[in-house]
Design a binder for these strands. Sequence first.
RNA 1: GCGCCCAUAGCUCAGUUGGAUAGAGCGGCGGACUACGAAUCCGCAGGCCAGAGGUUCGAAUCCUCUUGGGCGCACCA
Length: 551
Amino acid sequence: MGFDVTTILSEGVLKALRTAGLPEPGAVTWEVPREAEHGDYATNLAMLMARAVKQSPRRVAEAIRDHLPPIEVVERVEVAGPGFLNVFLTLGWRREALREVLTAGEGYGRSHLGQGRLVQVEFVSANPTGPLVIVNARAAAVGDALVRILRAVGFDARGEYYINDAGNQFLNLARAMECRLRQALGEVAPLPEGAYPGEYVIDLAKAYLDLHGADVAKLPEGERLDRLGQFAVERIVAEQRELLRQYGVEYDVWFSERTLRDSGATDEAIRLLRERGQAFDAEGAIWFRATAFGDDKDRVLVKSDGEVTYFVPDIAYHLDKFRRGFVKVIDLWGPDHHGYAPRMKAAMRALGHPEDALEILIVQIVRLLRSGELVKMSKRRGEFTAMAELLEEVGRDAARFTFLTRRHDSPLDFDLDLVTRQTSENPVYYVQYAHARVASIFDFVRERGLSEPDWERVDLSPLALPEELDLIKRLLQFPSLLEAAARTYEPHRVAYYLQELAAAFHPYYNRHRVVSDDRALTAARLALVRGVGIVLRNGLGLLGVSAPEKM
RNA sequence: GCGCCCAUAGCUCAGUUGGAUAGAGCGGCGGACUACGAAUCCGCAGGCCAGAGGUUCGAAUCCUCUUGGGCGCACCA
């Protein structure tokens, strides 16, 4: 971005400390105060230093203020409260900052925090044993927004979906397929223990028969199950993929567990742990020394019957991620797996990856309500509520935005009636309406035969109302807000910010006319309104929610 | 029993590496459309931040304990 005031301010403060004979800190941090009376930027530096220099915080702050060299954009500096240093910038500075929003346009908010570093976000990764459900929709909303936000702040972020097309879950699906196939051929075949009861498997079996006939029944069991299972997985994954695409989620990589196993990566994972002395034999099994890396107990890698546990391909998979060059791997898991996180992190540490290279985020459950009453979601009885139905009922924008109005690790009540209602009760329309209003103002300008001002040259000095200066201030907070959302992996901050921006814009619109006979004032206000529109659009885009011109 | 997460307005939740007077939506009550869109706006009411200690210039935020919830603790995935 153009001129970054905080670095200029920091330099000034450091210079002041030097001339005042005070020690220099490693860094000066600036925050944007909540209250306008507290200035544009504030630092708590004096309070942090007070103890070390044995002076009262206010005295330190006063010393800094008195020795501060003149800075062009600084109107005045105040010492306030227990020792805050409040900096008030000139109105000219703030207005010129608005111009930066306008010239940056759809690039406004982007930064280079990530320095192009490669990070991965793996999310949803549902078992390919049936349709996606509501929690998957939540994970998809969070994961996809995270990818978009990380990209905006300069990371090379990739979204990935892990397909569990091997192992026991796969076998259970294959057995269900086999049974349904027999039933379709008229045999009396009971569903085996553990096989998936879902009715969709009946349709899949019929589809297989239509395409490939019944010859598969003559194959040996292993090959037979393999073929049927793979057919089912391909169909189910294709459906999941299409549904996610409609939801606005495009993955960079769909990663197959089967290919991982076939490549010998699982054996290699065990070998690497052995080489590092972190695997040992006991009671006829092979164990990972997880307790050496913070886990509660050691974990079995290979069972005494010779089969690997689920843990091993998972280790191999994560190892593969790091081999592909990711400096940061972020996994979104369901709450039922949170106990699994310590051993996964332990395994990565055992294999030489830094503690924080793997980040595991827990996406909490979604409780579905209708008119305030809980909708039961029982997978066993096959009456789970599918993601497809959710999209059909509430739509992509409302669904995504609603999922992003909570922290990802907080349980969420999703009230279908409330989310469907197109009123002020629903925050997504509140934000979108603000954007549509901006668009309609420019429609009005065009209808009048007026032309848009040249943003490079327009005189912004007519902007003087408190609401106008407040709106600019909010627009200027957008880039640092994105960085905070990226650093903490909390996309919901963007959703809240947008609601607050809309909540500042609507009253302004209601109280003051943008287009008037005063040409200079109109041009300046159009610039402000355009700025609001730009940030609303960019912000909604990062959440995967549309920014409509009309509603 | 051990571990993780949580407790903020009637309800659902925010609260910017610990910052100045704790916010929003919904719900409740009362108002505003002959000018750019009323899916909007204005006003009122609503709080012992579960409780008790501690850390310090300062705590909803960090530490300890208590109470009350959710989840996890397999040679399952």
